[in-house]
Amino acid sequence: MKLLIVDDNKDITTMLSKYLSMKGFDCTISNDGREGMNLMAKGLYDRVILDMSMPDFGGMDIINELEKSNKLKDNKIIIFTASSISDDEVSDLLKKDGIISLLRKPVQLNELLSAISS
């Protein structure tokens, strides 16, 4: 299973890729929002783990851009965020075709694992 991890924090992307690689996933890392979006636009990944707060171009910008170009639905995105998002915002995000779940940092890795597998 091919995974894309988009997060500006290198400690987080390294930790996730080490763990998930050990669990047998093929992980690609992007520490930049625009680069991450370009990779997502190709639709090559089975799951995308997407951070919301990134400098310059955040998760919400990526979602909006992909929605405009009608490419959001080609992805299966797990939002992985430390930002305080209200319940309403969460349910709005989950309504979008292409977003499958939302996890709040710091999450237990086995929870992330089950979100990926579901």
């Binding site: 400690d11 930790m15 996730l16 080490k18 930002s83 940092k105 710091p106 890795l109």
Partner: peptide
């Protein structure tokens, strides 16, 4: 501040879990 405090906790908690998992 919530965001800034939770972000560093993510790798701390993550690596603890990985170590306890003993995969490495």
């Amino acid at each position: 501040i919530t965001h800034e405090l939770k972000t560093p906790l993510t790798p701390i908690r993550g690596y603890c879990e990985i170590l306890k998992d003993e995969t490495f």
